[in-house]
Each structure stands twice: as C-alpha cells, then as structure tokens.
Design a protein around this nucleic acid. Structure first.
Lengths: 360, 360
DNA sequence: CTGAAAGCGCTTACAG
DNA sequence: CTGAAAGCGCTTACAG
C-alpha cells in the first residue's frame, strides 16, 4: 500500500539543505532570507509539492482564521444571499467561512457548535433555530468565542438565562452582538400600506413565536393598527412556522373558519406567502381582486419569474456583509461586542398583489 | 480585555490533581482509570467546561475524521438530497462532512481543494465543475488523499493527463473511484419512451459537453434512435449548460428556427426542463398536446407541487450514501480504489407530459 | 492503575 | 542571514 504520509516542512528542509525554520520563513515570506536560499527552498517546495499543515499552524498561532456561519435553511435564497455577503466580507480579511446548514433543527445546531468549538473556530455567526432550547448556545455565550447573532434573537418564555444573554439590546458586555433587520418597521410598513388602501380586516400570518422575527413582525402589524385606531382581532393573528406548509395550512384554515373573511393577508416571509398563494389559488380566491397579499422577502426568481407581490425587502447581502465585518472586528477586539446592535433598514416595494378591498 | 485562552487538558489535570495523560484517558474513556480518579477528572472537566482541542488531536492522530463534499450547486434539490445521503453514511462512522458549494466555478473548486488539503482533510467527494481545466484536481490525484468522483467525470478534449486519471473505468490503481448514475441508460429510456409513443422528431437539450453527464445522456438518446433505425438530426441535439437559463434560450431558439418543429423535447436535467417549460408556455405551445416534454430528474416540489413531467429519476440519496460509504472504505484502505466504479440505476416515471404526437 | 518522555508539524523567541 | 531550543495541546509507547 502506498505511503499516506504528506510532505512536511522537514522534508523540504532536508531537500533544500536548510533548517526547517528557514523553510517556514520562505513559506510565510517573512524576514531576511537570502535570494539564493529562498530560491533553493522554493524549488524544493515545488518538487515535493509541499502544502503547509494548517492544523499545526493553527495550533501554534492559536488561531484558525476560520469562522462559521450557521444558517437555518440553506435552500432559502435569502440565506444564500446572506452567505455571499458574509463570504465577501471575510475573504477581504483572509478569513475562511465554513457554512453549516442547521435545517431549523436544534440538535444540528448544537452538534455544529460543539464540533466547531473543538476545531477551534475563531468566531461564529449564528442564526438560532425555531424554538431553540438546547444547551450549546449557553455554553457558547459562556465562552470567550466571539459571536454574531444574525437575523433573529431567541425569545424564551419566562426570564431564562438565555434570554438575558441573547437579547443584548443596549448591553455593554458579553462576547456577542446582534445584526438584524428592522422587523417591527417592516410589519408596520406593510400593514400601513394595506390600511391606506382601505383594508380593515387584515390577517397576519407570522412564523414562530419563539423567534424575534415572528414576534416583531406581528408587533409592527399591531402598531400600524393602533395608529389607525383599529382594535386588533386576535383571530386575525396567527403564529406558525416560517414554511410554505405552515402558510398553506393557516390560510386554508382561515378560508374555512373565519367569517367575514379578511380582505388582506400579510405574511411574515416568502415561504409563508407561497403557501398562502397556493391555498388561495386552490380555492379560486383571486389576488388582489378577492384578497390582497403582501409579504416579507422576495420569492425566489425561479419560482416567480415575474414578481407581483407587494413586499418588504431586507437587504440580505448587506446583512451578511455587515455580520461578517462585525465578527471580524470582534475577532480583533472582543470588547467591540459592547457596540450597538446593527439594525438593517427595510424597504417597501409596492406591486400588483395589493389593491383596495372590493367592498370599499 | 477578557482572556481568550481556552481551557486545556493541563488545566483540568491541575484541578483534578492528576497528570494530563490521565485526563486524556478519561476523555477517550480508554484503558484503566480507577473509578475514583475518573470521577475527580470528570468533575474538573465539568467545572472548567473543558472541550478537547481537535486540532491537537488531529495533529497527533494524523487524521481529522473529516471529509469534504464539493458540490456544484447546493440550491439544486438533487444535490441537497445527495448531501443528506453522504452525511448519513458518514455519521454512522463518526466521520464529519464539510459541505462546500463550488457554484459551478472552477476557481472556487480549486480554492476549496487547496484549503481542505491544508487542513488535512481525510478524503474528498468531488463533483467537478463544468469545463474544468484548473490545476488542483491534478494535484489531488497526484496526492495520496482518497477521492470519490461523484456524478460526473471530466471529459477533456484531447488526451490530457486529467482525462486518463479521472476516467478510471476499469483502472486498477490511483486514489479514487467514481460513483455516478447510468446516464446512458437514462437517455435511452426516455428516448425510447418517446419513440414508442410515435415521436420521430425528438429534440435533445443537454447540458455541458465537457461533462460526462451531458455527453452520456445524449449518447443514450442516440442509441435509442439507432435502435429504431432513425438517423439523428444534428440540428436536434444541443449542448448548453445545466441551467434554467440555458434550457430557456435553446428552446426559444428552437421555436424560432427549427422547422418542422420537433414533436417532443428531452431535457438533460430538471433546470433545463423548467427553462423549456417557461419558453413553451410563453409561446402558447401546450404540453403534451403540441409538444411532449420528458426530462432527467425531478423538479423541486416547491416549484411543482403536482408533478406531471415524465422523468428519469436518479436515486440522489442512495448515490450520496454509496459515495460516503465508498470514501470511508478508501480511508481504511486506499487500495479499495481499485474496485469497480459504482453505477447507480435509474428509472423511468411516465406522467402526463408525454403523449403521442398529434400528427400520428 | 498512573505518569514522564517524546513527538505530531509548525513558529516564536533567542543566539549566533 | 541562519539555526537550535522550546512549546502550541494532545496521545503513543514505555516505565513504574
């Protein structure tokens, strides 16, 4: 059987007739190495096809130059775009990004965190999973590893430790900061738009009520109703999941059970919107003639080549980029965690899925 | 600023009043450690929240227990399913999988390979990118790192080294094997189905002609035509990319320029099919009344809740699982690379997108 | 059952 | 400009 050993710095040193440390100097093109020696070493590196062992380097440097991005659903185009932003911000600083898909599963998140800590990851960007109540996030916050909480924060019922540690609004210590979109504003803008069109019975189909995004988008909805002096009907606010399935089910349920029917629906993300669309479609309820539909986030271009949904868009790329930058500054100085949360702006795009209600 | 140092085995040893090696024994629950000592050490581990440094372990073991999966497009549900198969096969053996998305870009593939080799990855599962002509794959084959080439092999024009090394059919040495679907058979089955329905002008829209999958699916198509004694019209075979865009463009081009129009289209993957569908739709060409459409791979459930396309399906999950298993056996014994390529079966699912041609 | 020594591959001081 | 020693955190092989 062929030898499995990889070429080491010692092999190169022997071949170039120098000490290992000299090879190291050439590789890291540092300090004074005579042109002649350098050439000899470089030749040896070429000939032996030497690749430095990053494990040994990291062990010595006490730094891996790797950060991880833990996202909840890599198939969502929103997250692939965020990922691109993170990668671009990090590659400028020669930091490598490991992308891990938690698939909205707490065990996966916990496994990854554990694995990454073992592998001495320099820092983490974490999108917590729905309804998270695992233990690793707490461990993580207890560690000195810099963290950026992305998009969502956890809202735990009761005053758990995690809540305190994770909320972090205005907090001045700890090893993390938060980068997220202005969900409250987004919910407000969408609702206000519908109210201004004349809608009075507006249904909010949100995601998980264990996630800040789910709660805050509903909060913005309520704020707008308040502003217009409309009492919010509890029947018209539903929490579920941020999935197509959930959007579909809640919409069907609404169609069957809520009378009079709302004249507009507001969904808390793109997947929910698609589910709602399918349900409305199946029941021959026309958008916007019979019901208006507005949503957070764009539908993927593939599923929806000609966008027609009125939407609040988050700038996914910028959000990723900011998160990457912030984590890198934490890497350099953990105290930077004290800095304010980064709250990304959102903007309303009005398209043809929203119109005045028929009755008005 | 808070200390960034993580807890080491030495800290634990000090606390538990034992030697570091004893802590190591407890952690790896190996050999004889007295119950009393073990308890003391475990307590110290708990109290200090000790996490072993996998970098140091890997350096010592000369093994990382990590393999990487380099896929061409993580947004394609085919590849997410393959990924799940790889992960399941590997997790049974306590091997961790790093998933990297090359996005069909050669530079990304080369970067990842380089990075992963530096990080001493134990083995790789690689889906080469379209039109690859980089250098890292060659380096990789020159190394002793076990590799599984997945789904596609590279076809380089002329007899390049890479070609020889990668084709590997029946070869008895080297550090890799190939796991792929039976593309020739798939192309044959789809075409035969259309021929049996009475179609005689069948257009094949394939992907890249630098990839085995693109070429072999067209080969199966030609085989079936041969069998039915039909001369293949070069105008009716088109290579492009495995993308929706490419499928769309080629279909539009066909609609505008090819007369008489083919009565059936065969697309080499799901994305091409979606592009073709959209183009046909835009030109009010009905499926299957005006033209039949058959394809490789399923369309994602999201885009297509009620499947109606006649399809050759590859078992993506099994393919991933087999690839994972094969790589793990290579890890244990590189000579296993000598084993035969694994060629996964495909099967034809007939739905409503194919029907006899109108003229017949 | 427990520990001191040596070494995985590299780099940071420190000498020359 | 070049190198010998020491150490990053861990475990193997050898002593006791």
């Amino acid at each position: 059987m062929a030898s499995k050993k990889r070429t080491t710095i010692r092999d190169v040193a022997r071949r170039a007739q120098v000490a290992p440390i000299t090879v190291s100097r050439v590789v890291n093109n540092a300090e004074y190495v005579s042109a002649e020696t350098r050439q000899r070493v470089e030749a040896a590196i070429q000939e032996l096809n030497y690749i430095p062992n990053a494990l040994a380097q990291s062990l010595r440097y006490q730094k891996t130059n790797m950060i991880a991005l833990l996202v909840s659903d890599i198939t969502n185009p929103f997250w692939t775009t965020v990922t691109r932003g993170v990668e671009d911000a990090c590659s400028l600083q020669n930091v490598n990004v490991i992308v891990c898909n938690t698939d909205e599963k707490q065990e996966k998140l916990d496994n990854y965190i554990n694995l990454l800590l073992q592998r001495q990851i320099d820092g983490l960007i974490v999108v917590p999973t729905e309804g998270y109540n695992g233990t690793m996030l707490e461990n993580l916050f207890a560690s000195h590893v810099p963290i950026v909480m992305l998009d969502r924060t956890l809202k735990v019922k009761g005053k758990g430790k995690i809540k305190e540690k994770i909320k972090g609004k205005g907090k001045r210590k700890g090893n993390h900061t938060v980068v997220r979109s202005d969900s409250v504003l987004g919910g407000y803008l969408l609702t206000k738009h519908l109210l201004e069109l004349g809608h009075r019975r507006i249904m909010m189909i949100s995601g998980s009520n264990t996630l800040s995004t789910g709660l805050e988008r509903a909060e913005g909805y309520r704020n707008a109703l308040d502003e217009f002096g409309i009492a919010s009907d509890p029947e018209l606010i539903r929490f579920g999941k941020f999935t197509q399935q959930s959007g579909y089910e809640i919409t069907v349920d609404m169609i069957q059970h809520i009378h009079p029917r709302p004249t507009a629906i507001l969904t808390a993300n793109n997947f929910i919107a698609v589910g709602a669309q399918i349900a409305l479609d199946e029941h021959q309820i026309a958008i916007p003639n019979d019901i208006s539909l507005a949503t957070f986030d764009e539908i993927s271009a593939q599923m929806n080549p000609r966008p027609f949904l009125t939407t609040v868009v988050q700038n996914a790329y910028s959000m990723g980029y900011e998160a990457g930058q912030r984590l890198i500054s934490l890497l350099k100085d953990l105290d930077a965690a004290a800095a304010e949360d980064i709250i990304m702006p959102v903007s309303l795009i009005i398209r043809t899925s929203t119109a005045p209600p028929r009755s008005s």
